[in-house]
């Protein structure tokens, strides 16, 4: 469903991604790991359509469409979802109102009828149970004053509401304790299916104890330098990223 070919991108003239190749099929879970500064979050941002990043080469095809040609909202409409590393706080806008607009905008994009208030509430209730989030959180201003765990749980809730084909989790574990990671991961697993895929971006292996990947890729210096199964994550956990530098130097 996702085909990234020789993707090159940067910000303010600085090249960060230097030719990424990655193919993701429906039902798969891929993990991208790598040290700080390797380009993990840049990849997530470019896929979601953040305008301050400039794509300088390569292509990304998502469900048969040229992803890079689409606006961020059209990407969401096509079924792409990015769980933010730093979810934005928006005082004065409740998660419920936000999601009501988002769900219906996405439905419009897909040519589906919009939900009325009752239908929306039903959907919301169902997804709240699925990802185990409290209603009080959803009536408050979006992310304002939320703890790190609450913010990430809210991201997972939004993901459940929008039912994406491809979910990208950008450092969803960062800043969370193990209980919060477990809750967030349980939410992610609850919405997984054969039709949709997940791309987990993480620095540490620990999230992958709960969201088991089919493939693990190591990103270093803007390139995927190593790919393997879930055991690669464990290997990295033991040896750290320092081996990369050695391998790279030799190569």
């Amino acid at each position: 469903m996702l085909q990234i070919k020789d993707l090159q991108a940067g910000i303010e003239g600085k090249e960060i991604l230097k030719g990424i190749n990655l193919t993701i099929q429906p039902g798969e879970v891929h993990a991208i790991m790598g040290p700080n500064g390797s380009g993990k979050s840049t990849l997530a941002a470019v896929l979601a359509g953040r305008s301050d990043y400039e794509v300088t080469g390569g292509s990304v095809e998502f469900l048969g469409k040229d992803l890079l040609d689409l606006s961020p909202e059209a990407r969401a409409g096509e079924g792409l979802f990015l769980a933010f590393q730093y979810p934005v706080e928006i005082p004065g806008l409740s998660t419920i109102n936000f999601m009501k607009t988002a769900v219906n905008e996405v439905r419009k994009y897909r040519g589906e009828p919009t939900l009325d208030a009752a239908e929306f509430l039903k959907l919301m209730k169902e997804k709240m149970n699925l990802v185990n989030i409290d209603k009080n959180l959803l009536t408050r201003s979006l992310n304002e004053g939320f703890s790190g765990g609450e913010k990430k749980r809210n991201e997972v809730f939004q993901m459940a509401m929008l039912e994406p084909r491809l979910a990208i989790l950008d450092e969803t574990d960062s800043g969370l304790d193990i209980d919060a990671i477990r809750i967030a991961a349980a939410g992610v697993n609850a919405v997984r299916s054969k039709e949709n895929a997940t791309l987990v971006i993480t620095h540490y292996q620990r999230l992958l104890d709960y969201i088991i990947p089919d493939f693990v890729h190591v990103l270093y210096n803007g390139r995927i330098v190593k790919s393997g199964g879930k055991e690669l994550a464990l290997e990295l956990e033991e040896t750290g990223y320092s081996f990369l530098k050695n391998e790279m130097n030799i190569a």
Partner: peptide, 23 residues
């Protein structure tokens, strides 16, 4: 960007943000 990444068009996202500012 956060709102747009959830499928909300730029025009509606602007209006939601301004409304939330005024609220």
């Amino acid at each position: 960007f956060y709102l747009r990444s959830r499928g909300i068009t730029e025009a509606i996202a602007r209006s939601l943000l301004l409304h939330s500012f005024a609220i």
